[in-house]
Design a protein around this nucleic acid. Sequence first.
RNA 1: GCUCAGAUGGUGGAACUGGUAGACACGCAGGACUUAAAAUCCUGUUCCCGUAAACGGAGUGCGGGUUCGAUUCCCGCUCUGAGUACCA
Length: 972
Amino acid sequence: MDYQFKDIEQKWQQFWANNGTFKAEDKSTKPKYYVLDMFPYPSGAGLHVGHPLGYIASDIFARYKRLKGFNVLHPMGYDSFGLPAEQYAIQTGQHPAITTEANIATYRRQLDQIGFSFDWSREVRTSSPDYYKWTQWIFMQLFNSWYNKDAEKAESIAKLVAHFEQNGSAGINAVCDEEILSFSAAEWKAMSNQDQQAELLKYRLTYLRESTVNWCPALGTVLANDEVKDGFSERGGYPVEQKKMMQWSMRITAYAERLLQGLDTIDWPEPLKEMQRNWIGKSTGASVRFPISGFGDVRTEVGNQATGHTNQKPGFIEVFTTRVDTLFGVTFLAIAPEHELVASLTTPEQKADIDAYIAQTKKKSELDRMADAKTVSGAFTGSYVLNPLNGEKIQIWIADYVLAGYGTGAVMAVPSGDQRDYLFAKHFNLPIVPIIDIQNIETEADPTKEGTYINSDFMNGLDYKAGTAAVIAKLEAIGAGKAKINFRMRDAIFGRQRYWGEPVPVYFKEGLPYLIEEDHLPLLLPEVDKYLPTESGEPPLGRAEGWNYKASPKSSPKERTSDSEADNSLSLGEGRGEAYAYELSTMPGWAGSSWYWFRYMDANNDKEFASPEAIAYWKDVDLYIGGSEHATGHLLYSRFWNKFLKDIGKVGEEEPFKKLINQGMIQGRSNFVYRLIDEEGRGTNTFVSYGLIKEYKTSPLHVDVNIVENEVLNLNKFKEWRPEFADAEFILENGKYICGVEVEKMSKRYYNVVNPDDIAQRYGADTLRMYEMFLGPLEQSKPWNTNGIEGVFKFLRKFWRLFHNEAWEFSVSNNEPSKAELKSLHKIIRKVEEDIERFSFNTSVSSFMIAVNELTDLKCNNRAILQDMVIILSSYAPHICEELWTLLGNPAGTLSYAPFPKFNSSYLIEDEFAYPISINGKMKMNLSISLSLDVKEIEATVLANADVQKYLDGKAPKKVIVVKGRIVNMVV
RNA sequence: GCUCAGAUGGUGGAACUGGUAGACACGCAGGACUUAAAAUCCUGUUCCCGUAAACGGAGUGCGGGUUCGAUUCCCGCUCUGAGUACCA
């Protein structure tokens, strides 16, 4: 029979599903290998041809590893909480769970049709209560933990409380809020429970914090950054303002150093690691306190005065600097317009100036401020600080180049060393003091670290290293500063004012958050009448009627587990306690994806997020494939949660993803037709072929790429495409209509979306899989282009034909394979092994073509050779290979676990090599010489050759370079 | 601006540690089969000159360098893509 891909593919997809062919074993004597894809958000649009790229690559790898004798875990699931479903729900009233379910069904059908070897028995959905129960559980563990800097790990809050009870706050080195109290053990015990809880919240790894959000009053909701364009909501175009709200946050900054160090231990693409390093943004420097002039004593204990009495201003301004050695060059202090001390520092004479400046900066959008980076602006507050080292009076300015969100929101300005400070000083006529002997500050700042200090009191004559050490020592001695490491990364906000997300397992009592009891998990998402905020601006969960928490004060957990798990949120034991309001915000999109790889290890466990045994066996992800757009989101949060789970002893590895590969983006490739414009400037119904548009006046028009092949427009299909083109006319070149091409994002509105369903229909899944790989290196971004797909399809037919005679009857011979056949086979064995190990899938597709071309030329129909070929090709084109495998007489379903053929180098040994003979580096001819000859003999053979002599024109070469088995080069 | 990645025929791309540039495929041209078309098969296909071949010259974004030999290494530049945004 001819190659009937449709029947074959359907048959085997069915077989795999019915037989659970790809089910990973939980216990195995085989070594484990975990291949993971970034799971998709199931959008309504379904998959386009770009999505499966990474999945195909990982599937080839997973199948290959099975052939190599590994117990492979290759799961798939859905990141199914998210905004689009909620948006759709708002518009249609349809429950997001329903649309999500429908979208998942589409995704599943599309994925199945490509023939992936996923273990679907482990599927996860982040929006399923069995799953988000454990997301909530991890949240609870974070709530019950604090970060001990001395131990460099998270520890339980109970341990912190025990310490407070014994020693008070002394001896605690924690990552926590700025304004913590210091107290003795007795003082702690004397505190009310309320006060104790308030204090503990400052230490918890997930905590409440006031944060600024994009608030859209018209929509009554908070928007994500990418939903805001130029200060207006993307949807509807309503104004968006910055609003402060109490929000859940994650103390990811506690892990900043470990997140940074860990990068050196994992095999990720360098650009991606660099992105994370920049995001974490570690800088080493010092914090320095500048006493405010005329304020009295400098207070050295931050904790003492920061008890929340906001009307009392501290006696100093703290700055962070990476160049503390330039402290004697400070000639003014610049603070952010939003800095909390601005009001109290502004003198009555300067108030008008300052107010005007603040008003001006507020008006500027972020975009303006960016575009305006070169313009110097600022205003003098009228107040001064003193240089802590020499008591010199220094003006305090506000300037919008200082960002409130970074460091302390204040900068010590050193115009001689920093270009921005220099421009500022020039503009406002402030002094510029050189502090290094070789500094040249005629026209711009000179940030050199060479030379020795001048104008710097006790530092004079010292170099950078000694000077820096001396300043820090001095600052520490007088309590005005210390060495400090600063991170750019901020704590992550962990709350969304949305419906379609995980409810936060917290209720409020007297304004403070408490966890619900663990056996009340999962806290189910309640039903609401509408998916919009309430009239009073509360998140959608505020609409849920009777949705509140009634703790059961003394009910034992054992008693509770017998309760039905499903309905514990709404019908908790009447009268068993007071009702408390639940947290109304839900978790952000990244919550569910920050631990999902553990769930796959033991997806159906209802006792734990995954059993310790499963985690001990599967450990971590060996290979993770996904897009680089998740560099600073998902991939950072996942590493953070992984480290946390390790700290509390639940998992064993410090890093979740040992090796990571970024697949490139598949861009769209748009086609254009050119509509002729008539003399009045109106569009006609005549279209000019691309090559002729210079001769006419035309306007380009996107045309559906699916009716264009190799840039040639299918005229009939074009006429059918839209009614207005039914009687279109064409000006052709060489009898064809050639379309223009441009690379754009793949999007419906450009008519350049290619659906994998269409490709699978027309050519089959095996062709689609191989073609996506053939397109180019996996990591590279490239436009989708169907132009070459015929070649891949033809290759598979050619492969099929090796097993069939002229009449398309299956026919293989049992003869001894010939030397040439064995050579072809072992060449491809080695090539595919090498290529897969280095993720160079495109080159193996070419090599398969070469191998099949060779075997076709050899008229090979040898069983031994062809059976090995089937195994090698099966990870790329599994359906056709399964079919041929059974035709060869093997039991169905055994191919996936067949042993990968062993490479034998002896078949490739050559006794001759066709040496390229070059003169002055230019290749002139080939000469076959025995490989047994040594360098001298080769040289003699070459020089004795008559053709070589012709090139040399009878002269002796000046020099002869012979590289055995490679090349001969003669210099004349 | 900074950081990273990249630039090879008409097109996608190959050349893995410096050693025959353009593998493989698409497209195109010519041919075979066919009443014809489709499908299939065969031949050619970097460019320029030579209007057939042999042969000669140029050639991996641009300009230099190292080397017997550079797509590959070094220096300078141009362009494209991605990330980031006054980070003290």
